[in-house]
Every structure is written in structure tokens, then in C-alpha cells.
Design a protein around this nucleic acid. Structure first.
Length: 811
DNA sequence: AACTTCGGCTTTTTT
DNA sequence: AGCCGAAGTT
């Protein structure tokens, strides 16, 4: 341990508030860390402080994050500042840590030793199958909603037996599905994401011996992004902390944007009630953005009534004004943004990756991609399918899963006739039927039926062949390493051949991805995995302090077509490859390593828990495109916040409910605070959405930003007052050409017959005495029959009879 | 059993 | 407009 005088590197880079948090001793701490206030730095330095100054052993520390990326980054930064590897410290995601915990205590948790993890897609498939078996109509019980119901219950810590249908038919059925779902998971030895947390919590709750063991072990528990915890995660933390008052929670209630998936901002207030001795530290000095940007963000978020309260400030300058662009339509918007980016790159020397385009919904990326493509500016879109979520990878993984556990029905259904081998619906139905009757797995049903001659010979042959394929690999799994098993299985199943024949252009990509999978398996080594050793609970020191490291396994590919890439590299740089054993493993290949069953299982767990990156090649300097959600935690010198329109942002599905509207506002706050130097806010007056064209008001969020901080840019250099009148789309009886034919829309003309609009123009703003302000969408009919469609700001879109509607033109 | 077409639906995303 | 699932066709 370095001497006391060697702590300047821990404290020197900190401001007073940060230092207060880092050096706190005794008691719980809640750090309210505003955007850009050095939240991660505080966590990292706190841990360094605990180890170097308070002489805490890494083994007695627990640090929890939400994403694997954050966990990797934190571990890397701690190791960097300490200049030593963090052996036994538990750093990971809630799910990752719960998984590790359950692996160690599978018996006590009443799980099979080699339980598998279901990802969301698997879960959805299972629910679908159950709905079908229970003969519930999918239109009345949409699988998505049913899955959502089950997950929401688990997130709240509720088992089906805790639920009451309240006499409601739907509720009763949902509970029945939940029961059936649990039974199916138990039969297949499977655990979904929420189950990891719930089981881990229940185990701590029900087993005082285990609970005390961990309570004793963890002297300090640190949590990042605390505002994103759900009920069960919070309960789990409390359980682990016990009476030790050893919680160090970092979060920002203003950046809570995952309420829709169970996160509870309330946990921040609740924590202060549950632990009245908690000391709160506010980090309000922002090191990221200009004064104007911070003022805008502060003003915006002030509109949210339920806040803990915080005000960001900077010692830096005010910076440039925020620029606002009212685009005519979405194409104009994308052209504007790309033109500006082009100028920043070519005229001001910015790198491409210093520019980010942030949007509310993924669908919005397309136009920007097109415009960037046109301008020949490289870009990178975040989000979308990750490596282990790709269909071909899941196909191959289904075979691996069956080798590990033949009772995995979800894998069975996926693999059995893919590639097609003559096992059709009829055959599958009889397998399902048999499985249901025998209350066993499909695998067993298949063995029963092929043995008893109950299947038609042809089907029986095909099923037998499939069974043989899996069995053969189960047998030789002992002699093969993971890589060989994966490669052989893909070949024997005929997957690559199958994709080769695929006629759409994706076949080649898919084959490359399968090759990448084999490569990933090759790199995956036992020593990268987890230490599943069962701690001796009654012993003073059950887990080996030096061994438990590497909560985050290496080897997840960052995407296709880049076999030599360094996996999971940190684009922000600054961290050494730390726990990433990969580099070494690559170079000292010691010949074929025999496959340990836990090797295969660790690989399967990795695939589920850490699905890999979305895209290859972070190395190329490219403009960054992402949703606001995925932008959290990032920063860019130049930010374009686009599609800032009422109905899109806030999204129409959230605008009604006050609490969801607040969350939208927080999302906007997150967006604004991503910008370091320049911020553009764009909205389109007219936008094609879901196939039809609509008029939009600028978002209310725009009007919540003080006008003096905003400067409007006029389109195409033409100075024109901001109004909806820019539309070239006049639709009055006199100017409207009589058109025949069906190719409407192209020129923006939405009706082919002459109509009477009473002098109102399409896109014109109007006021109605009852419905308030709105925009003319379209019209039909003549004279007394003339009707006009208005999209009202508050009341939505309505058809009104012109003769009666007392409409007053605006603007 | 495999291929084709039609119809409904459409936020955000990590584990 | 596009994606997915379900029904209809070959």
C-alpha cells in the first residue's frame, strides 16, 4: 500500500464537493451528481480512496452499474488510478452480479447447476407458445404486453401467488400465464433477466446465513446511476447492506429516463427516508457545457415539479447561443444538419465524431443516414441488433444450448427445423402435445415418440437424425474445446450451407457472422469466465480474495466483418486493457483445451448477459447518430437535437400522462446537456410519419427554454419570419388544380378533388373557441358539405364542418 | 413443406 | 412506409 502522502493523485483533481464525497467516512452517502459534474470520477476516486487510504481490501468492495460498458470502464479507470489489478472486487451490473451470486448458490436458490439465461427474445417466444397452449387470443393478450406484465411483477418482487385478480378476467388470465411461465422455466432450467434479480433477492431474504456472509463481506457498496434502479434492485441493495450504513449511491433524478421499464426515481427520495442518517452531497459544477447550454437545461428542467433540486453552473464562459432551426419538413431538417456538420468538419477542423445527431425515435435516423451518405460523410448509428441478438447467431447458439441442456425447449423449437430438415408443423405439434401430456421437455417427447413408432416414418427419421446430431456433439463435447464444438456444430447442422443458399443479400453477412462466432468461441477461455466456487458460508473467509475477479468476461465481438478488432475497446480511451485477458490468450494458445461443461455454460451466459456491441469499427472517425436514450452518459462538442416537435418529442404516447411527460422532459434535459460547445435544436413543420404527412407544432420544450438563449436560423440563408406559411402547399378552391389519378402526395397535394376550405390554407394555424389552437391538415367537400380537418394542439385531430366551426385564422 | 401475399401496428433499451 | 405474423397458394 502506498504511503499516506501518496494520495494527492486521488484528491488533487477534485473540487470541494467531489472531495467531500470521495473522502466521506462512516454512514450512507447519496451523491446528487448533475450532468457533466464528474460522477464517474467521484466513484472511481472514492474506490481508490477506500483502498489506498482506508486500506479496504478490494475483495470487500462491491460496485454496481447498469451496463457492462459502464462496469468495464469503471474497473479500467480504478485499475489505472491504483496502478494495480482489482482482484477480488465485485464490479458489474445488477444482473451480472446476481447471476454470479446464483451460480455460486445454485443449490440454495433451488436451481439446476447449469441453469440457462433467457434473453428477451427467448422470453417472448416462450410466452407466445404458452399463450397458444392456453388458447388465449394473441390480439387480446399481446405477447409483448403479457411479457411486460410478468417482468413488471418480477421487478416489483411479486410471484404469481402474491397476485390477486380482483375478479377481473384479464388479470386472472395474466396470472395464469405467469404461473405457466414459471413452470415452463423451472422445467427447462431457465431464468430470465428479472428472475436473476428476484431470485438473488429472495435467497438473501430467506437465508440468514448467506445474507450475513455477504453483509459481512461487503464493507462498501457503491452504486452508479442509482436513479435507474427498480424496486427489486433497491431491495437487493438494502438486503446486502443490512445495518452497516455502507451505501454510496450516485445518481441524478433529472436524468431518470427509464421509468417505462420499471426504474423508480422515487428510490432517491425513499433512500433518504429509509436511511435518515444519509448525507447528501450535491455536485452542481459542470465541466462539460457552456453557460448558455446549462442555463437552457436548468430552465427546462425547472418545469418538472417533483425534483430533488439542483442547479448546474460552470466557471467557463457563456459560449455561443443555442441555434434553433425551423425546417420546412424532415428532408429540409436533415439537409440543414448535414450541411452544418460538413461545414464544421471542412471549415472549422472538427472531427466527425465530435458531431452528434440525437433523436427521439430510432426511425428518425434514416433520413440523416441518407443525407450523410449523399454528402459522403462517414457516420455511425448506435443501437439496433447486437451481435448475439442476430438471427443467425441465435440459430447457432440454439444448437450449443441443446448440447448444454437438451431440455431447453426454446432452443429446441428454434433449432429443430432450422435449417429445414423435414420436421414440419404437424410433427412439431405432436411433439408439443406429447411434451404437455408427459409434463416433460420437447427433447424427451421427441425421444418417446420416435421410440414408440407414433410418428409417421418420414418424420420419425428426420427427428431421429436431429436427436442424433445433438447427442453426437454432447458425446464429443468432452474431447473438443469450445471453438471446435461450435464450428463442428454449425457445420453438422448445415447452417452455413443454409445461409449460402439464401437469396436476399444477407446470406454472406450471416456466414461471416457465424465465422465470427467461432472466432469468439476460440478466444473465450475458462479463465475469462467467472469463479463459480461456492463460498463456505460458515467459514470466515469463504471466497478466495485473489480469485473472484473478472466479473466482466472478455471476448464479446464488437460486430461482424472485423475479426481482428480488439473487443469492447473503450472509444473514450484512457483505460488499459485491464482485466481483458484476451490479448494474452490469443498469443499463448496452448493447444486444444478440453471443454469443461462450465466453459460452455459461461459462454452461453455471456451471450445472454452481454450481447455484444452493435457495430464494428469504432475506430473510424464518424458522425455519431443515436437516440436520446443511448446518448446518456456521453458528450459531444457539437450536438444536433432533431425532431423537437410536439407529438414526437414529447412523444404523443407520453404527452398525456404527467409523470411520463416529466420523463420526456428529463430526456430533453439529457439531450441538451450532452453538448459541450454548440447546440442546435431543430424541428420540422411538416413531417411524414407512419407513411402519412402531418403538421407539427414546435415542442413545448422549446418554449421552456428562455428565448434570449436561442437564436433562430433561417432556412437556406433566406431571411423569412418563422411561420407555417413556408408551405408551398396551398389548397384553396381557386388555386387547387383538378387532378385525376392516384399519385398524390408527391407534390404535397393531398386531395385530388376540388374542395372548399373557406379560405383556409393547408398548414395554416387556426383557433377554435372550444378546441384551441391547431393546424389545418386537409379538407373535403364543397359548400355546406365542406369539412376541414384540424390537428389541434391539445384536442388532437378533428374533422369539423366548415359552416359551423367558428375558426379564426392565426399568424 | 415451402413460398407468397395480405393486414395490422408502430417509443425509448439494458440486462 | 416498412416489419412481422398469419392466412392462403403452390
Amino acid at each position: 500500500m502506498p504511503p499516506m502522502d501518496d494520495i494527492s493523485h486521488i484528491l488533487a483533481p477534485l473540487n470541494d464537493a467531489q472531495r467531500e464525497a470521495v473522502t466521506a467516512s462512516g454512514g450512507n452517502r447519496l451523491v446528487l451528481a448533475g450532468a457533466g459534474s464528474g460522477k464517474t470520477r467521484v466513484l472511481v476516486h472514492r474506490i481508490a480512496w477506500l483502498i489506498q487510504v482506508e486500506h479496504a481490501v478490494p475483495w470487500s468492495l462491491l460496485a454496481v452499474t447498469f451496463t457492462n460498458k459502464a462496469a468495464r470502464e469503471m474497473r479500467g479507470r480504478i485499475e489505472e488510478i491504483l496502478q494495480q489489478p482489482l482482484g477480488g472486487m465485485w464490479v458489474g451490473t445488477f444482473h451480472g452480479l446476481a447471476h454470479r451470486f446464483l451460480r455460486a448458490h445454485w443449490q440454495e436458490a433451488n436451481l439446476p447447476q447449469h441453469f440457462q439465461i433467457l434473453d428477451s427474445e427467448d422470453q417472448q417466444r416462450l410466452v407466445k407458445r404458452l399463450l397458444k397452449e392456453m388458447q388465449l387470443d394473441e390480439s387480446r393478450f399481446p405477447p409483448r404486453q403479457v411479457t411486460g406484465f410478468i417482468n413488471a411483477q418480477k421487478d416489483e418482487g411479486r410471484r404469481p401467488e402474491h397476485l390477486d385478480d380482483g375478479g377481473d378476467f384479464f388479470q386472472r388470465k395474466l396470472i395464469e400465464v405467469y404461473y405457466a411461465y414459471e413452470a415452463a422455466c423451472a422445467r427447462g432450467g431457465q431464468v430470465d433477466f428479472a428472475e436473476l434479480l428476484l431470485r438473488a433477492h429472495e435467497l438473501l431474504r430467506d437465508r440468514p446465513d448467506i445474507r450475513h456472509h455477504y453483509q459481512q463481506r461487503f464493507a462498501h457498496i457503491l452504486v452508479d446511476e442509482f436513479q435507474d434502479t427498480n424496486a427489486i434492485q433497491y431491495a437487493w441493495l438494502r438486503m446486502l447492506a443490512g445495518e452497516r450504513d455502507n451505501l454510496f449511491l450516485v445518481g441524478d433524478d433529472d436524468q431518470s429516463i427509464y421509468g417505462w421499464r420499471g426504474a423508480k426515481v422515487e428510490n432517491m427520495q425513499r433512500f433518504q427516508r429509509d436511511y435518515p442518517n444519509t448525507q447528501v452531497v450535491r455536485l452542481e459544477q459542470n465541466y462539460r457545457s457552456t453557460g448558455h447550454i446549462l442555463k437552457a437545461a436548468n430552465a427546462l428542467i425547472a418545469n418538472n415539479p417533483s425534483r430533488l433540486g439542483k442547479n448546474l453552473w460552470t466557471s467557463g464562459g457563456e459560449g455561443e447561443p443555442i441555434l434553433r432551426y425551423a425546417a420546412f419538413n424532415e428532408v429540409d431538417e436533415s439537409r440543414f444538419v448535414v450541411e452544418r456538420i460538413r461545414r464544421y468538419i471542412t471549415e472549422e477542423g472538427y472531427r466527425r465524431d465530435e458531431c452528434a445527431i440525437l433523436y427521439r425515435t430510432t426511425a428518425q435516423s434514416r433520413l440523416f443516414e441518407e443525407a450523410l451518405l449523399n454528402a459522403q460523410i462517414p457516420y455511425r448509428v448506435y443501437g439496433g441488433l447486437r451481435f448475439f441478438e442476430r438471427a443467425e447467431i441465435k440459430d447457432a447458439m440454439a444448437y450449443l444450448r441443446l448440447v448444454a441442456n437438451p431440455d431447453d425447449d426454446i432452443a429446441f423449437e428454434r433449432a429443430v427445423n432450422n435449417p429445414p430438415r423435414g420436421i414440419g408443423l404437424r410433427t412439431l405439434d405432436s411433439l408439443r402435445e406429447q411434451a404437455r401430456e408427459a409434463r416433460g421437455s420437447l427433447w424427451r417427447a421427441a425421444r418417446d415418440l420416435t421410440g414408440s413408432g407414433a410418428l409417421p416414418p418420414r418424420a420419425a427419421g428426420a427427428v431421429n437424425q436431429f436427436l442424433g446430431l445433438i447427442q453426437k456433439h454432447q458425446a464429443c463435447a468432452r474431447d473438443l474445446n469450445l471453438e471446435a464444438l461450435t464450428r463442428d456444430l454449425i457445420a453438422a447442422a448445415g447452417l452455413a450451407e443454409h445461409y449460402r443458399k439464401e437469396k436476399d443479400g444477407k446470406g454472406q453477412d450471416r456466414i461471416e457472422n457465424l465465422e465470427q462466432l467461432v472466432e469468439t468461441a476460440r478466444r473465450f477461455r475458462h479463465e475469462m469466465g467467472w469463479d463459480y466456487e461456492v463460498p463456505a458460508i460458515d467459514g470466515a473467509d469463504g471466497t478466495r480474495p485473489d480469485q473472484a475477479g473478472g466479473a466482466v468476461a472478455g471476448g464479446v465481438p464488437s460486430g461482424p466483418g472485423n475479426p481482428t478488432d480488439i473487443p469492447a475497446g473503450n472509444p473514450e480511451g484512457g483505460y488499459t486493457q485491464g482485466n481483458n485477458t484476451e490479448g494474452n490468450a490469443d498469443d499463448n494458445t496452448e493447444g486444444p483445451v478440453p471443454l469443461d461443461k462450465s466453459d460452455l455454460n459461461a459462454f452461453l451466459a455471456l451471450a445472454a448477459l452481454e450481447a455484444g456491441d452493435t457495430q464494428a469499427d469504432d475506430s473510424e472517425d464518424a458522425v455519431q447518430l443515436m437516440t436520446l436514450h443511448s446518448a446518456k452518459g456521453l458528450e459531444f462538442p457539437i450536438v444536433f437535437l432533431v425532431g423537437v416537435e410536439e407529438g414526437l418529442f414529447p412523444h404523443s404516447l407520453s404527452a398525456q400522462d404527467p409523470s411520463r411527460l416529466e420523463e420526456e422532459r428529463r430526456l430533453c434535459y439529457v439531450g441538451l446537456t450532452r453538448a459541450k460547445q454548440r447546440l442546435f435544436i431543430c424541428h420540422a413543420e411538416k413531417r411524414r410519419i407512419h407513411g402519412s404527412e402531418d403538421y407539427f407544432f414546435p415542442s413545448r420544450f422549446l418554449s421552456e427554454i428562455p428565448a434570449e438563449l436561442l437564436q433562430e436560423i433561417r432556412g437556406g440563408g433566406i431571411s423569412r419570419p418563422y411561420s407555417y406559411g413556408r408551405s408551398d402547399n396551398f389548397l384553396t378552391a381557386s388555386t387547387m388544380p383538378a387532378r385525376v389519378g392516384s399519385n398524390q402526395g408527391r407534390s404535397g397535394i393531398t386531395s385530388a378533388t376540388p374542395t372548399d376550405t373557406g379560405g383556409f390554407r393547408l398548414g395554416q394555424r387556426v383557433r377554435h373557441p372550444k378546441f384551441g389552437e391547431g393546424v389545418v391538415l386537409s379538407s373535403e367537400g364543397l359548400g355546406a358539405a365542406a369539412r376541414i380537418q384540424i390537428n389541434f394542439h391539445d384536442a388532437g385531430s378533428k374533422w369539423l364542418v366548415l359552416a359551423y366551426a367558428r375558426l379564426e385564422p392565426l399568424g
